[in-house]
């Protein structure tokens, strides 16, 4: 039954891939140090879960998760328009904390810390994705479409403007581009994909609560983007695979049971440090952010 375990890991890779390539769009390609990605993921998961529990069909919940997250992406982009670098990073991080606090305290809507259990399995055109293999196919197709769309965006004239903004925003503005609008689009699109990743997560795990969307969930996604290399989609894919699978071999190392938990975490952290020190520009990093 090893295949069930592998299918599970592949589903996680698929969800993380959508999350990471969309973060790559805002961080790597547009140069926006966006630490609010997990908040969009949370918004998508909650919208999707609440609608699904209300009995609405999968495609509707799924799309609305993306659109809802995109709406918040635009809001965040508009409000942080003037911020750059560290300040933008901190403001978006604060946004993550605020969304977390809302999901925890707005108990009337989200049931707060009790979470939302029993999210139904998705069904499309009368077919229910009840077993993990069919769910994997669904995730794979969505991840592939997301990847193709984001690749398309980065290679389009719009994508080149985004890269120009990253490299020199002032010069881009002088050339007559509305950089504010462009940045908002980038963040909005990025948020859309984070939202649909959140929707897939909610459908897959069937249970969500606020603790699934905290700083400790942001760290692996950010690590994927950095280790993959900024503005490299190929690197992002490889890094997603590496980072999702990284904890798995550690499960098979025979530590004594008294230290098993901390020992695995320490090795995980050390491997992360090692990669960061050896490849500070990531696997395929083309650019640097300052």
């Amino acid at each position: 039954m090893i295949s069930a375990y592998l299918i599970h890991l592949l589903i996680l890779i698929g969800i993380y891939l959508i999350l990471a390539i969309s973060l790559q769009l805002s961080v790597g390609f547009t140069g926006l140090l966006n630490l609010g990605h997990i908040a969009f993921y949370a918004i998508g998961a909650y919208i999707s879960a609440l609608l699904a529990l209300a009995g609405l069909p999968f495609w509707f919940c799924f799309l609305l998760a993306g659109i809802g997250a995109m709406f918040f992406g635009f809001l965040l982009a508009i409000s942080t328009n003037k911020l750059k670098g560290d300040y933008l990073a901190l403001a978006t991080l604060a946004f993550t904390f605020v969304i977390y606090a809302i999901t925890l305290n707005w108990t009337g809507l989200t049931r707060g810390p009790l979470g939302l259990p029993g999210i139904p399995k998705p069904s499309l055109f009368g077919f229910t994705f009840s077993d993990n293999f069919s769910f994997l196919v669904l995730v794979f197709v969505i991840a592939l479409i997301s990847y193709l769309i984001i690749t398309r965006i980065t290679k389009s004239p719009f994508g080149r403007v985004l890269e120009a903004i990253r490299d020199d925003e002032l010069a881009t503005r002088v050339l007559g581009k509305n950089t504010f609008k462009m940045k908002s689009y980038a963040l909005g699109i990025s948020a859309f994909f984070a939202g649909i990743a959140g929707s897939l997560y909610a459908y897959y795990i069937t249970f969500i609560d606020p603790s699934s969307f905290t700083l400790s969930q942001l760290i692996p996604v950010l690590a994927i983007v950095i280790i993959g290399g900024l503005a490299s989609l190929k690197g992002t894919i490889i890094a997603t695979i590496i980072l999702v699978l990284l904890p798995e071999p550690l499960r098979f190392v025979g530590f004594p049971s008294s230290i098993i938990g901390p020992a695995r975490q320490m090795i995980y952290a050390l491997l992360l440090l090692l990669i960061l020190i050896k490849k500070p520009r990531g696997l395929y990093g083309r650019i640097e952010l300052e």
């Binding site: 996680l12 249970f207 609560d209 603790s211 699934s212 798995e248």
Partner: peptide
């Protein structure tokens, strides 16, 4: 205490 890690 993370549902996703628990599922893995």
């Amino acid at each position: 205490c993370d549902p996703a890690k628990g599922v893995s």
